[in-house]
């Protein structure tokens, strides 16, 4: 029995999620909102990996790629938030448009 939900359905959900994440990264002033937008983009990439893996006869390679994306997302969030905390300590703000100097 073939499924009605096709590969395109998953890809379109992921494309819209990617666009929302891109919008957050481009427009928000708060650095933490920018990080949240990056998480949305990484999640949409993961949906793509898993959808291609599933619709090519449940190959395992897509799932392996998705695992490494999750690992890198965890590392990125930890280092990114550490940098944001440090910026807040030095500049007393996390608005990305106000931080234009390498030092105070």
């Amino acid at each position: 029995m073939a499924l009605h939900v096709s590969l395109q359905h998953f890809l379109i959900v992921s494309a819209v999620l990617f666009s929302l994440g891109l919008f957050a990264v481009v427009t928000r002033r708060n650095a933490i909102m920018v990080l949240m937008g990056i998480e949305l983009i990484l999640n949409s990439a993961n949906i793509n990996f898993l959808a291609f893996s599933r619709y090519n006869g449940l190959q395992i390679d897509g799932q392996m790629a998705a695992i490494f994306v999750i690992i890198l997302a965890a590392a990125e969030a930890a280092v990114g938030l550490a940098i944001v905390l440090n910026i807040f300590k030095n500049f007393n703000t996390v608005n990305v448009d106000e931080i234009s100097a390498m030092k105070q």
Partner: peptide, 12 residues
């Protein structure tokens, strides 16, 4: 798309 982008319902 390969295989017209559809697949069978799998119970794995």
């Amino acid at each position: 798309w390969l295989g017209a982008g559809t697949t069978d319902f799998l119970v794995v």
